[in-house]
Design a protein around this nucleic acid. Structure first.
Length: 221
DNA sequence: GCGACAG
DNA sequence: ATCTTGTCGC
């Protein structure tokens, strides 16, 4: 599908931070997603094997999760893992995979943060600018922010707060398991991001689209 | 200076 | 993330 790149990926860590500070102002993270209009949901994931990065995007129907399209891409891993700069490591291979999409997903679920990021521009926000479509960040562990105790029951969620700002939510997608860190990417907001993630998690801890993408990217775990 | 730190 | 077997718990 058509992408809208804002800059080249071949930059230094210092330049990457400068780019994030500029791009953060373009992210729209206060717009509800109308779940009644969602028909197709994409799961996005990247796995790294030696020096190669493998990306997979799996598009499924919503809310029954029948796979309708899978695209993959493979490239040399271009950037080290630096907390806060994940986009610059996974962005290039994701760009190559996203270009191949022919179905038009209504929303994209990313394995990583959205606004729950030091500069409020995690990978879901960043790629959301490339896509100009709704995106949601769904991380398995915390990058930044603090939260009050979370009830053990599936569906429970509490605000994730950083420097006095609510940047996302900690969500229990399954009773008695570690929670997910959910935040809006681009063209989404916190309540609808939480609602969609829960609606995409009928059985396991991770949303169905992300599980599918994780498999297609060739990861184990 | 010290601790924290998505994937 | 990845390297890796069996094992504890719902």
């Amino acid at each position: 599908m058509k992408l809208h790149p804002r800059h080249a990926w071949d930059v230094s860590p210092a330049e990457a931070v400068a780019l994030q500070k500029r791009l953060a102002g373009e992210v729209v993270a206060d717009r509800p997603i109308d779940l009644r209009t969602v028909r197709l949901v994409a799961g996005v994931d990247v796995s790294v094997k030696q020096n190669r990065s493998h990306a997979a995007i799996v598009v499924s129907t919503y809310p029954d999760f029948r796979v309708v399209e899978t695209v993959t891409a493979e490239r040399p891993t271009p950037f080290p893992y630096i907390p806060g700069l994940l986009s610059f490591r996974e962005g290039p291979v994701l760009e190559e995979a996203l270009e191949q999409l022919r179905s038009g997903p209504d929303v994209f679920l990313f394995d990583g943060m959205g606004t729950a990021h030091p500069r409020r521009i995690g990978i879901a926000c960043h790629m959301g600018l490339w896509l100009e479509r709704p995106t949601i960040g769904c991380g398995k562990t915390r990058l930044v922010g603090r939260n009050d105790p979370l009830p053990e029951e599936k569906g429970a969620h509490v605000p994730l707060v950083d420097r006095g700002e609510t940047i996302g939510a900690v969500v229990r997608t399954r009773t008695g398991t570690h929670p997910l860190f959910v935040s809006p990417g681009h063209l989404a907001d916190i309540p609808s991001a939480v609602a969609l993630v829960l609606a995409c998690t009928p059985k396991f801890r991770l949303p169905e689209p992300i599980r599918q993408a994780h498999k297609a990217a060739g990861a184990f775990g």
